[in-house]
Design a protein around this nucleic acid. Structure first.
Lengths: 248, 248
DNA sequence: CGGCCTTTTGAGGCTACTCAAAGCCGGTGG
DNA sequence: CCACCGGCTTTGAGTAGCCTCAAAAGGCCG
């Protein structure tokens, strides 16, 4: 893990140019520049947050993909969500003593560091940014809600298909390249299983079966959904208008 | 459903006196009074929001308990969460065209109505309330996270026990009477099943089995957990410091 | 080439599901 | 007052989906 204290200028933030994200105006950027404390770079497998620890930081994901998960005492693990560029990490830690989940880099990642102490001043001085923050929180809630429906009411086939479609949709929305409905992302079958509440073995069999039917092609280094419409149908995925996400 | 347009004075808001909730100061109450549009009263079974509809309102639950659920096209239903007094309802609808879930009264309920149009002015004029709103959103996220862990990684026994303990904990935190760890609340087994991602039949058998062992006593009109410590242990429920919840 | 991580395949078993019907209880109407 | 009804709970029987254990095969890297 490589922390850089030197403040990188927000005016050159890579997210600013990101398709699918709504860029900040110069005034807001000036403020964010004072709010920003530095950056952190992680390799695949690196930890951003660790369960039961306290954290005094908030993060915005600049590059890469993260997973957020919880572990039970007996070792069972449940991945709660995936995070893409523009997502805010650690908001829950801003209010709690300890965080209830860990966050790990799924692909090499770069994050922007903010101090939670200055958080109230952000709301006071830039209500618009506060509005965006609530927007992000509400969206995250919607995502968790969908995930809950999957875990509670969908079959293994549907869960895998749903996750595949959702990941692609989400990646495209974050401006990540996904030509031909193909996403270059390394998710292991154990991770998929831990996301979907399935065993690794059953996950494997389900993936193979879906590949055989041409619904989802999920290989070690990448994920492809040949026919989004058909897959979305199969999983009862509702394609929502991909409005521009804000970020800070 | 009984809508009252006449503004009931926020200074006499029942939540102000609620143990477990942090009351607003007079200045904030003045503002909320201008923000408030009226009240709505619902009987058990009444709908606050309906899936796929648009909503121009936000609500704060004043009395009663609500459930928030999603339905798939083929009739499968998944309850996402329970809502208690002080909870904000419909925040997601403030940003989206259509809401992805329905909200129904589990017990006779009373809600406070706000217009979403005036939402930005709340943030501008009362950053502290904005902060509280984010606090609530973060907490809701934590709750959904726990629910996800249950659905994904806990057995039926653990799920039922977890839900029972969580409901009691949550009710106590909202100042609802629960003497002797007993909560007077009418949740049907179908609703429990729809919350926990189980079939109604299996839910019934699980409840009976837990009752037999004296872990959870869940009868038609009420819920009792004889030994919270033991039940929490069984379900790997983490008792968190029940800090005072804000509300608006 | 060997070691490590991940995927694949096999076999057997349990958890939870479906279908089906009966019991219960409170409310309503004859 | 009792018969009937609708919603909820209980119980039975059979089964399917998913799990666990176990081991082999594949891929990447030093």
């Amino acid at each position: 893990m490589d922390i850089q204290r030197r403040t990188v200028d927000c005016h050159r933030c890579p997210l600013q140019a990101c398709k699918g994200l709504r860029s900040l105006d110069p005034h807001q950027l000036d403020f964010m520049n004072t709010f920003k404390e530095g950056e952190i770079a992680l390799q695949r497998g690196g930890m951003v947050l660790e369960q039961e620890r306290r954290s005094v930081h908030l993060y915005t994901l600049l590059e890469g993909v993260l997973i957020r998960y919880r572990e039970l005492e007996d070792g069972r693990r449940q991945i709660v969500n995936f995070m893409f560029p523009g997502d805010m990490v650690g908001l829950q830690g801003a209010f709690d003593d300890a965080i209830a989940h860990s966050v790990e880099a799924l692909a090499d990642a770069r994050l922007c560091i903010f101090s939670r102490d200055r958080f109230p001043s952000l709301l006071g001085e830039h209500p618009r940014l506060g509005y965006d923050l609530i927007w992000l929180a509400a969206k995250e809630e919607t995502a968790l809600e969908q995930h809950i429906v999957s875990l509670g009411r969908r079959s293994a086939r549907e869960r895998v298909t749903f996750l595949a479609v959702w990941l692609l949709d989400r990646a495209i929305g974050s401006g990540i390249v996904a030509e031909g409905n193909e996403l270059r992302i390394a998710v292991t079958q154990v991770q998929i299983a831990d996301m979907l509440g399935l065993s690794q073995v059953h996950t494997n069999r389900t993936i193979k079966s879906l590949a055989h039917e041409g619904l989802v092609e999920w290989k070690p280094g990448h994920l492809r959904v040949p026919d989004m419409r058909r897959a979305a149908d199969e999983a009862q995925y509702e394609v929502r208008a991909n409005s521009c996400r804000p970020f800070l």
